[in-house]
Structures are given as C-alpha cells and as structure tokens.
Design a protein around this nucleic acid. Structure first.
Lengths: 215, 215
DNA sequence: ACAAAAGTGTTGCATATACACCCATGG
DNA sequence: CCATGGGTGTATATGCAACACTTTTGT
C-alpha cells in the first residue's frame, strides 16, 4: 500500500447506527440535527468516523455513548454503503448498524459541539435526511423486519421483564401489521426467543400479565 | 472531517473475494500466491484496495478482472472485517464478497506484478492464508451454506444449461452432505430458483438428462 | 437382458395458521 | 355484575422429509 497514491489516499470509515425504539406503541428512530456543514440543520442518524485504533463495533459504541449516553447495547451489521460520493468532503465508506433500545435509557443531549438537537421520530415522518441516511435507514428498517422473528434483536428494547401484550404491540408496530396473539406467544416461546420469568406484573390495570424475559 | 487528524488519517478500504467453484464434484476456492511483502509467499484470496472513484462492488469487479480475467459475475456481501491490526501496513477495513463461478472461465494468470502463482484449492486443504483471510474464508463458506437454498447464488457456476445431477452434486459438495434427489428437485423448482429449459442433454452417458436454467 | 443412471409420486411428520372461549381484576 | 383485557387449546393447511419403483440408453 502506497498511501500517497491519489487513488487511495484520504479514505475513511463511517459507522452509522439506525437506533430504533417503540414508545407508546409507536415505532420510532433516533435522529440528530447537525450544527455544522456539511448538511447543516439537517437531521441524520447517529454516526461518525472510525478511529485508527478501533474496530467498527467499538467505534459505533463510542459514537453512541457520546451522542446519547447509552452503553452496553447490541448492534447488528445490516449493510455497507460505498458510493464514493455519499459524503461530500472525502471518500467515506459507511458501515450500517442496527440497534433497538428502551427509549427511557436515552439521556437527551440536545446540544453538543456538533449537534443542535436530537430526539425520537415517528418512522413515517422522517424525510430528507443528511448524507445518504434515507437510504441507510430504509435498508435498516427492512433488515429489522426480516430478522425480528429469528433473533433476539429486540433484546435491548426490554432490558428487564416485559409482558406479552407489551412485546406483542412492539412487533405489530415495527412490522406495521396485526399479529394473532395466541400464535405470537407460541412462536416466541417455541423458538426460545423469550421465556416465562415466573413473575407477575404488579396488578395495575385489569387482569395481571405474566412477565417474560429474553433468553 | 479533518483528514490530518491522526485518529483518522491513513485509513483504507480493501475488497476481498472468496471465489468458489465446483470442479469434478469437488468444492474449491481460488487462491493467489503473493510475490511481495507483506505476507510474501503466502496464499491469499483475491482482493485489493478500493479506489477513490469506485464503490466497493466496482472495486471488486476490477480486482477480479485484473487477477483472473473474469467479467460479469455476481457478488454478495457476506461481512466486513474491521480489526485495526488486520493489515500490517496501515488500517484497512475489508469488505468481504462471495462469488461462485464455472471454473472453466478463469484464465490462469499464474504470474503478475504482485503475484507469483494462482489456482483452485480443495476447500479442506487450505490453511494459514495471509492477512486474516482464513477468518474471511470461513465466514464466506458459512454464508454460502446458509444461503444456498434461498437465492440464485450458484447462478454463475452454470452459465448456460445444466442437468439436475450436475447441480445436485454441486450442492452436496458445497454442503458436504448427501441430499435426497427427489426432494432436491422439488425444492429448487418450487422455490423458482431453476426452471426446465425444455432441452435435453446430448445423450452422452446413459439415460439423457433434462437441461435446466437458473431463473 | 442387464447394468447404470435419470425420472417420478405418496405418505407421514412438523410447522404455521386460523379461530373462540374462559378467567382475573377494578370499578 | 359487568367491562376490560389476558390467558389458553384445537382443528386445518401448508411445507418438509423419508422413501422405492419405473424408464431410458449403451453394451
């Protein structure tokens, strides 16, 4: 590798996180408003450059912590985005990750040195994000839908125990369709994605619900 | 992006292709012997650096053509490899692709400016490849096995027509297990991966076989 | 006619879907 | 006692796995 070769030099690696939640039964994505150029005043996904001493997941963890205060969550690679023009300043390859989290865990760092606002957005309402983040977000949403029944990808959405109606509503909101309650329960239990914790909800509403955990 | 920041500078993007074939019923991978440091005299997968005006698939196409003379094949992303120490000279992120091809199409460029030998290797016999290519190749093999029944990932292995016994043998070799002939045929036809071409093999052996094509 | 390889169909099992009633709690 | 919402089981359909005989050709 000859790093002075203009064919190669000035490349970089972005990590980009599509961070999702379900809040009050609504599927949402976390967006940040940029303070500086390029894409000043545009909303974008969480992301940033990978340092030379980090692998991509470590960079993603660091960026997430810097921008939301969140630690210890799981990511999944969904795709890479390599269009040489995707970032205007220099050639940056983006590595796209997905995370799904309990919205309560996010400290709202409304303003930082690089950002002027941040928050959860209804998934139908986002549009015209900065960089190529529209494309990245759509790809992430599709990946999430395709993998929601085969993995514990929602594990961090419910950090502790949860009731079946809660997680049922989360699935319906993410997939944007209704799902039969009885079959839903059987499916998740049979595939060993969740398990009965033995505990019961504090009777707050009507009939108390059982509490489940991810395995 | 401040490209003089030592945290970011001197990064690069590798594309790496695990190129597979099935030759005489044996599952094989294409390897190249390096002529120069680093990893001089080691065998490695096809790969190289991504230029600033290329997206990753274009870079992969170019590298493949330079090293084997092959054009017009399909790749699939299987993973990325981002360990900052994976390449000794500078920080290179690797984008791993898979291709499966008719071995007849490879012109053997035994020697080039960067390589001193090249060829197909039995999949059981490779060991101790340069860079982290052992890890990449294992990941690619697993991805291929996981996706072989759901996609046309073998499309380029049979550029024209093929008989069912031929493709059956290819599947068995890749998966390293025997598969029931009747169920195999039903599966591929039902999933619309292959279709009857209407033509018949030139009766060369015993009973002539039907010829199929990928859809 | 026989050996070698290709073509084909049925049955049972497992998984997924559709669907309706009972139960516990709070008011 | 009634309204609300949570818990449970069964019957059907669909997809997957196991399995054996017939057909064609060359010798």
């Amino acid at each position: 590798m000859d790093l002075t070769n203009p064919l190669y030099k000035n490349q970089g690696i972005h990590v980009v996180l599509s961070l999702f939640t379900v809040e009050n039964g609504k599927f949402k994505v976390f967006l940040i408003k940029r303070k500086n150029q390029p894409f000043k005043d545009k909303w974008i996904l969480i992301g940033g450059a990978c340092y030379n001493n980090e692998d991509a997941p470590s960079a993603m963890k660091r960026e997430l912590f810097e921008k939301t205060g969140i630690e210890n969550i799981n990511f999944r690679l969904h795709n890479i985005f390599s269009d040489p023009k995707r970032s205007p300043l220099c050639r940056m390859l983006a590595v796209g990750y997905i995370g799904v989290i309990d919205c309560e865990r996010v400290k709202f760092l409304k303003e930082t040195s690089k950002t002027q606002d941040a928050g959860w957005f209804d998934i139908e309402k986002f549009c015209d994000l900065g960089y190529d983040h529209d494309v990245i977000l759509k790809d992430a949403m599709q990946y999430l839908k395709d993998n929601i029944f085969d993995t514990d990808i929602l594990k961090d959405l419910f950090p502790k125990c949860f009731t079946l109606p809660e997680i049922h509503k989360a699935y319906e909101s993410i997939l944007n369709r209704s799902i039969d309650r009885r079959n839903f329960r059987k499916q998740l239990l049979q595939k060993s994605i969740i398990a009965d914790s033995g505990k019961m909800e504090n009777a707050t509403g009507k009939k108390p619900s059982k509490l489940y955990t991810f395995i």
